[in-house]
């Protein structure tokens, strides 16, 4: 009964919303021309990066804070000191491939970070690739799972957010939150993105490695 009601309700909702989407008129306001018009002052030439780190930089600032809080919450509920599971041997081919892939993935991350200024890319994509490299190394048993983070790991996890916050605080005199002086905007964005890449990579990897039970 419940199954039928929920299925019917969901189908009805989808039909109504789909019909509404098909009826939509032309957008009343578009921000794309505004972004294109002010792109020259943003310090980067890719519009998505300009929106993420300049025009709506506070979204990104809050986002990295949310990620950090999620990771802290996760470490609070993850169980520590669990007996390691019996580990089967890993294929040597897999281990070798992971050893070869990991440095290349770091290279790709650095490229993505650099490319974000003028084409699709940026700190999030670079951080995701870094995290994937860490997860790959962990799954091939080359990198042990993380228990309680030490000083360096804590600094790395929080560093991106703290750097972003420090730059935001230093620029408050400009009159608005995260309003960069146009001459230094490109450099500031690159500095923030570099910090974000390291921290995002560590946080996203931590979401996996703090939960993993294969500790050695």
């Amino acid at each position: 009964m419940k199954r039928l009601a929920v299925s019917l309700g969901a189908a009805l909702f989808a039909a109504l919303l789909g019909a509404a989407l098909l009826e939509l008129g032309p957008p009343a306001a578009t921000l794309a021309p505004l972004v294109a018009g002010t792109l020259a002052q943003s310090g980067v030439t890719h519009p998505v990066t300009a929106v993420l780190l300049n025009f709506r930089g506070y979204d990104t600032l809050l986002e990295i804070a949310v990620l950090l809080i999620a990771l802290i919450g996760l470490t609070a509920v993850a169980r520590r000191g669990e007996a390691p599971a019996a580990t089967a041997a890993v294929e040597p081919v897999l281990t070798t491939l992971a050893r070869l892939a990991a440095p290349l993935m770091v290279l790709v991350a650095v490229y993505l970070l650099w490319a974000g200024a003028f084409r699709p890319g940026g700190a999030f994509q670079a951080g995701a690739v870094l995290a994937a490299a860490a997860v790959l190394l962990h799954l091939t048993r080359l990198l042990p799972a993380w228990a309680t983070p030490g000083t360096w790991l804590r600094a790395g996890l929080a560093g991106g957010f703290l750097l972003f916050l420090a730059i935001a605080a230093a620029l408050l005199a400009e009159g608005a939150l995260l309003k960069y002086p146009p001459a230094q905007a490109g450099l500031l964005i690159l500095a923030i993105e570099s910090g974000l890449t390291v921290s995002l990579g560590l946080i996203l990897a931590g979401l996996f490695l703090f939960l993993s039970e294969e500790r050695r």
Binding site: A32, E63, L74, F124, L211
Partner: peptide, 25 residues
């Protein structure tokens, strides 16, 4: 393409990953 929603969604995807990990924990 409008870059503003794309940037918002990029932010949302990363937050969704973190929320999922917290939910799984």
């Amino acid at each position: 393409p409008d870059p503003v929603p794309q940037a918002m969604v990029l932010t949302g995807i990363v937050v969704a990953v973190a929320a999922t990990a917290l939910a799984l924990a």
